[in-house]
């Protein structure tokens, strides 16, 4: 983690420009991850490598384990067996501090989960103050620049209840970005939103893609998957069925199961 480039102004992320020069070492490595809830095995041996700057979209029918896999990545859910590495750190190692890992992995939730008692700005400053130890003034400046980045500079003093769903989710993204993460995880970020509100969130996400942010995205938004993903992984019943670039999975999947899934989505 020592070579982690630090950007403080939040708008310019230079680290990804030289990501390719860093070599081929993947940023996220998932090795044979298993997870069960009771008798039900929701992850049956997942192996996946995600390069720095790549956008990985996880798709699959509900109950396929996509969200569980995402939550294992920042240890909101503990794996039963297997290993997950972020750079040189083993996330799943017992002596790894999950709080330290989570600072480097931003997460955006389906049900948004903005801190209901705090304004948009304070939603962002809380982590900066209590986790990063920034001063009140530094945190405020950082929060305002993140809000500006997601186009909500004018809503800094609004409470979550005063924001639309799309605005809330953009604050949710800004809150995660403010911690300056290596990877951003998106757990169905638009499925709780009306279609017209989804667009503003997707635009922010497209902006992150353009900046070269490493992202793992669980979504049913095939427009985003098609336009933004470097790789799409199709999961079913807790296992990876097929993985490949969007055009291949959309147009020419190898597996019958994959083909049926994408056809069913197209009919929606």
């Amino acid at each position: 983690m020592s070579d982690r480039p630090k950007t403080t102004d939040g708008t310019v992320r230079e680290r990804d420009a030289d990501a390719s020069a860093r070599g081929t070492e993947p940023l996220l490595r998932i090795e044979d991850v298993h997870k069960s809830y009771g008798d039900e095995e929701v992850l049956r041996g997942i192996d996946l490598e995600i390069d720095r700057g790549d956008v990985e979209v996880l798709v699959g029918p509900s109950g396929s384990g996509k969200s569980t896999l995402l939550r294992c990545l920042n240890r909101l859910t503990e794996v039963d067996s297997g290993h997950i590495y972020l750079g040189d750190t083993e996330v799943t190692a017992p002596d790894t501090d999950p709080n330290a890992v989570r600072q480097q992995i931003g997460m955006v939730f389906q049900d948004i989960n903005l801190f209901a008692h705090l304004t948009a700005r304070k939603n962002i400053t809380l982590g900066l103050r209590k986790v990063r130890g920034l001063s009140a003034e530094e945190a405020r400046q950082r929060a305002d620049s993140e809000l500006e980045r997601v186009g909500l500079a004018d809503q800094a003093d609004s409470y979550p209840a005063q924001l639309s769903g799309g605005q809330k989710q953009r604050v949710g993204i800004a809150r995660a970005l403010a911690m300056d993460p290596e990877v951003m995880l998106f757990d169905e970020p638009t499925s709780a939103l009306d279609p017209e509100l989804s667009n503003e969130v997707l635009e922010v996400m497209q902006g992150l893609v353009a900046e070269g942010m490493t992202m793992v995205v669980v979504t049913h938004e095939m427009r985003f998957a098609r336009g933004g993903a470097d790789e799409i992984t199709f999961l079913a019943d807790g296992a990876i069925v097929e993985r490949g670039p969007p055009e291949k999975l959309f147009e020419n999947p190898e597996r019958e199961r994959t083909k049926r899934f994408f056809e069913s989505i197209r009919h929606e």
Partner: peptide, 27 residues
């Protein structure tokens, strides 16, 4: 208080106790 509030607090690196203190209890 919705469970997701504490999850979100932990996702930004607050410990469980800090999340309870700064996010759950004020609500």
């Amino acid at each position: 208080v919705d469970e997701g509030q504490l999850t979100a607090a932990r996702a930004i690196g607050l410990s469980k106790l800090e999340g309870i203190r700064h996010v759950v209890l004020p609500q």
